[in-house]
Design a protein around this nucleic acid. Structure first.
Length: 215
DNA sequence: ACCCAGGGTCATA
DNA sequence: TATGACCATGGG
């Protein structure tokens, strides 16, 4: 990126002033965050709410129950959030993974992340969502919204999730963000992205953030 | 009708 | 390592 590009901290401060993220990842339990993270893959959160309501009504927002549920039954309940054949299998595998929750809690963050990515159907972004919101570890979510936002801010951002993470993680680390800040950061970025879309794109919306240089 | 959404897998080069 | 096809549903 150019030397004039704003720091992560300056971007965070600007978003805090301009955006209201509300309560970003609403969930009653850690397992509900795991389920929501899988269901929301490439799907609007509204669709996920329908599926979560179905699962809650069926008493399946519990790892022990979900782990032994037939895939066909699951598919019927999660149909509103799409990709039901793949996601039903992923949910069952994720529930089995979750049964070992006590030992996962003791893992260092990078090993927790790797353990999640080992579950088929859970990739880097879903893993980071779970690590951040479920296990409250300090990680930045390098999703498409973040990559678009940082590009608009003048950062040179690689295309893929993992390439962006590899290359730009040091710039986030410099900001010395706490876990609650990183959780808020992600929500702010996504809400800002939605706003930017309805305002005709980042080119129009970014300048209204009035990001301070060097701050 | 078209495009997108709080991605991941698999095949291919 | 990195790109592209494919997956499924609901809303604007």
């Amino acid at each position: 990126m150019t030397s004039a590009a704003p720091s992560a901290r300056a971007l965070f401060d600007a978003l805090c002033r301009r955006i209201d993220a509300g309560q970003w990842w609403p969930a009653d339990t850690r397992f509900e965050i795991v389920v929501g993270a899988v269901l929301t893959q490439n799907v609007a959160w509204r669709n996920v709410e329908y599926s979560l309501a179905n699962l809650r009504e069926a008493g399946l927002l519990e790892a022990q129950k979900l782990a032994t549920t037939a895939s066909a039954d699951l598919q019927r309940l999660i149909r509103p959030s799409g990709f039901m054949r793949a996601k039903s299998e992923t949910l069952i595998r994720a529930a089995r993974w979750f049964l070992d929750d006590a030992s996962h809690t003791r893992l260092p963050t990078d090993e927790l992340r790797a353990s999640l990515i080992d579950v088929k159907g859970i990739g880097p972004e879903t893993a980071d969502d779970i690590v951040l919101y479920g296990y409250e570890r300090p990680v930045f979510i390098w999703d498409l919204y973040a990559r678009r936002f940082l590009s608009a801010a003048g950062w040179a951002v690689p295309r893929s999730y993992e390439a962006a993470r590899r290359t730009l993680q040091p710039l986030i680390d410099e900001g010395d963000f706490t876990t609650p800040e990183l959780a808020h950061f992600h929500g702010l970025i996504v809400e800002a992205g939605k706003k930017a879309r309805s305002c005709g794109g980042w080119e129009a919306f970014y300048p209204t953030l009035e990001v301070s240089q060097r701050g």
